[in-house]
Design a protein around this nucleic acid. Structure first.
Lengths: 247, 247
DNA sequence: TAACACGGTTGACTTGGATCAAGCGAAGAC
DNA sequence: GTCTTCGCTTGATCCAAGTCAACCGTGTTA
């Protein structure tokens, strides 16, 4: 390796992907690592990848070798049946992991598509396993992340199995709001990155039903909608609506 | 430790829980381990626990410290909302793992209830993490199991989000049949361990709808039902029904 | 042996959300 | 600057599944 001046080293450390100086480190894979441990993770998370709006990060059936951490942007994942029906299984934002479905069969089982120009960090999975055999904290946190995904999926199953249309949408908005909050954005005002159809697919509803529910929420004064721009006016109201309506 | 004769050792090794001589080892956690590695796992999976029909293996909110492998019997897991609504999130049979939801928050997020007198192996989770830092195969297989759970959940989301009642039930029966087959049981004849209501809860349907769908399947000659006894007569027919009906 | 409880089936009716259809507004293409 | 497209909204109608209710069979209790 050629010798470098201190300045060069600093520049490089800023330019290259590095968990150590990523502002998402408290949300993402490095949670709970020491400075030292995080630097070992840096070596592994070396490649970033840009994904343009509408492009696939990976496709169902494709071989699996890496998981991805969203650095910026917004993704959806969907699965599709032979007969053409498809379902959005999730929306992922900065600091969230993509590709965990691929570990099981060494092939991805869903499509991951960018909903806006995005950037991800690639994490070669076998190297992650190697490192997590050495760093107990990393291992444990990774297990927590996978488990959290399972719990999240149970929540969606609950939503799809027992809630009515307006409850589903309320739960969806509250969830988005909460995730924006924990990323330092406004919890009450945001732009939806997905269409009504994608929301509907995720919630097991048709786009017309989603649209009507938005209109009703607006009439009731829970939110203000203008296309993709949402302002949440009454979080407790939405919560009440979500809980007190039987199917 | 007191000295033991060879006979005593053999007896003990049969009586105590041991993956090495468990007939589920090809389905369960020890998949892909060498004889040597499996013996190290034996030390860890030392306690069995009986759970009587109707009893909880664990409850939502309870602290998490172990995962469980079903040795015999049949379980359901369910989550419940404050307002009393609940949803069955899965049915688990021999060789399947329970409790993965608890890793994320160190507390279980669902209830696990035995649907018949059952027996599980307790696997202290921190010790499993320890061992999987040493045994690469174990680590990798465990990751696969968690990932498989995520993929399974996506399948259920698809089912709940896009399929109609009869398709859901067909998918459910085909899934059960396939799981019985891989355990060496008949793929075409089995007893349901759960009620119509529990099936309905899992599939996002009311028990009356489940009952009607069973009756229709019988009329059409796909299956023969008598209470909980099911004979599947036309697997391709069920598969067709599952795929070619638009919502 | 009666009676009770529980799970399941079936029928009649209701309804939430799907479907079909028309129209509108914003954003990108030319 | 106009045209086209795409996403969204809203109305009218329809239907799959939910609801309510009666009844049946089986297994358990008194």
């Amino acid at each position: 390796m050629p010798p470098q001046t201190a300045v060069q080293e600093v520049l490089l450390s800023v330019l290259k992907t590095a968990c150590s100086n990523c502002n998402l480190r408290e949300l993402c894979l490095p949670v709970g690592l020491t400075v030292d441990e995080m630097q070992r993770l840096d070596d592994l998370v070396s490649t970033r990848r840009r994904v343009k709006r509408g492009d696939h990060l990976y496709r169902a059936g494709q071989g699996f070798d890496s998981i991805y951490a969203v650095r910026s942007g917004f993704f959806k994942t969907d699965v599709l049946l032979e007969d053409g029906r498809d379902q959005v299984t999730g929306f992922q934002m900065a600091g969230e992991l993509l590709g965990l479905d691929g570990i099981s069969t060494e092939h991805h089982t869903c499509n991951a598509i960018a909903l806006e120009d995005s950037e991800v960090c690639s994490i070669p999975f076998s190297r992650l396993e190697g490192l997590s055999r050495e760093i107990h904290n990393l291992q444990h946190h990774f297990h927590k992340v996978m488990s959290r995904e399972i719990v999240r999926d149970h929540g969606v199953m609950m939503l799809l199995g027992t809630m009515r249309a307006e409850e589903r949408l309320a739960a969806f908005l509250l969830n988005l709001s909460q995730r924006f909050t924990s990323r330092g954005f406004s919890h009450s005002e945001f732009y939806l990155r997905m269409t009504r159809e994608e929301i509907g697919s995720y919630l097991g509803l048709k786009l017309e039903t989603v649209s009507r529910a938005f209109s009703r929420f607006q009439e009731e004064g829970f939110i203000a909608v203008q296309q993709k721009h949402i302002r949440i006016l009454d979080i407790p109201g939405l919560k009440r609506l979500m809980n007190h309506q039987a199917k």
